[in-house]
Design a protein around this nucleic acid. Structure first.
Lengths: 206, 206
DNA sequence: GATATAATCTTAACACTGCTAAGATTAAGG
DNA sequence: CCTTAATCTTAGCAGTGTTAAGATTATATC
């Protein structure tokens, strides 16, 4: 008997997992179907029994990340019982998700044609933000302004997420605010970014 | 004599221009050195006399776009004499630049490792924004908060730029605010986006 | 349980890619 | 004018996505 049976048994799942890992470590640019196949101990054409083409494969990997992202936001939302802080917490969660897996960001938001209007995490953020705005500005401003403020908030958070994706920016930012630089303590860095996002977001009146 | 002389005479420049045009129309994903070479009437290996590799070529194209972007911001800044509106105008200019050439956005900001801390248009925006903030909050808030507000402003504008890059979002947004939908009148659409950005940005107190 | 069918995998091949080495052609400078 | 450097072509390598044909195995049906 050779190393593996003729049938892998779990190839589709393994390809997706290896794809995730590869993108997280190297980015999507250098990912190839053939390499993933070989890594999974299978011939270079085997993946095409499970995915129509590379694009379809990447799309499934995207969905996987999107689910993780949505779940993260959902958990943050549910565990926040202070209605005053829900947007702040959601924003921090948003930024931290991508700052912990920087290469996911460009993979999801540039290298694909996501349907922005039906993209679950965006809908979720916009819905919650809209609700919060409605509570805060109850009848004081028009529906129009509520929508504008929601968009402004979303754009700001999304922009910050991209910034904190870049190591160079993180370094510069941590120097600028003169925090104790515990470079390698990753849990400390997470907390530092957490504080930074809190400060930045609450520096504007929305 | 054949179609062209053995020496092209202006190959480097033509490749960059064709690269710009190709990215603007098709995105960087499907760009290949060979295609550009053939389009320029030259053999497929000729480009490598002018560029070390594909990455170096794309980097030069990036610089080209970056210059255009910086110039656009600069012109906007210089032609705005109302100190109260300078940030608003700069933000609109920022967003409009990429909404007019959507594929430039993902090409510049994802498919490359720009040195964010030395990236001219970012430095420019941050400097101007910082100065304006200093004027507005003259001594009333700390240097720290000024920096945070500057970052918040930049992130918001940058996030909006990405949003207005997506046709699906533009449609949805124009429906939401119930503007007259002059779909094909591109100059009208520019003005519409211009108004939208103005409204969104001025909906938050920064 | 045998057999038909469908799913999965391998091998081989095609067209395309980035890129290089070797040599041809032309421009520039002494 | 002649040397040198710049520019281009031709061939070719290794790697890519993808497909067609056929081998192997799981699944369902009688």
């Amino acid at each position: 008997m050779s190393k593996r049976a003729y049938h892998h048994g779990n190839l589709k799942q393994e390809l997706i997992e290896r794809g995730l890992e590869f993108i997280d470590q190297n980015g999507v640019e250098s990912l190839s179907m053939r390499k993933l196949a070989i890594l999974s101990g299978v011939s270079s054409a085997a993946p095409y029994a499970h995915f129509e083409n590379k694009e379809a494969f990447l799309s499934e990997v995207q969905n996987y990340i999107t689910e993780q992202f949505t779940d993260t936001l959902q958990e943050t939302y549910e565990s926040c019982h202070d209605r005053q802080r829900v947007l702040l917490e959601l924003g921090k969660s948003y930024v931290l998700f991508f700052s912990q897996n920087p290469l996911y960001y460009s993979f999801i938001f540039s290298h694909g044609d996501i349907d922005i209007n039906n993209y679950p995490p965006f809908q979720m953020f916009k819905n919650i933000a809209g609700n919060v705005m409605n509570e805060i500005y109850d009848g004081k401003i028009g529906e129009h302004d509520i929508y504008n403020k929601t968009l402004a908030m979303w754009a700001m958070v999304h922009g910050l997420a991209q910034l904190y994706t870049l190591p160079a920016f993180r370094m510069m930012d941590s120097q600028k605010v003169e925090q104790k630089n515990l470079q390698n303590a990753s849990s400390a860095e997470i907390q530092r970014i957490d504080e930074r996002i809190e400060n930045i977001l609450s520096s504007v009146e929305i």
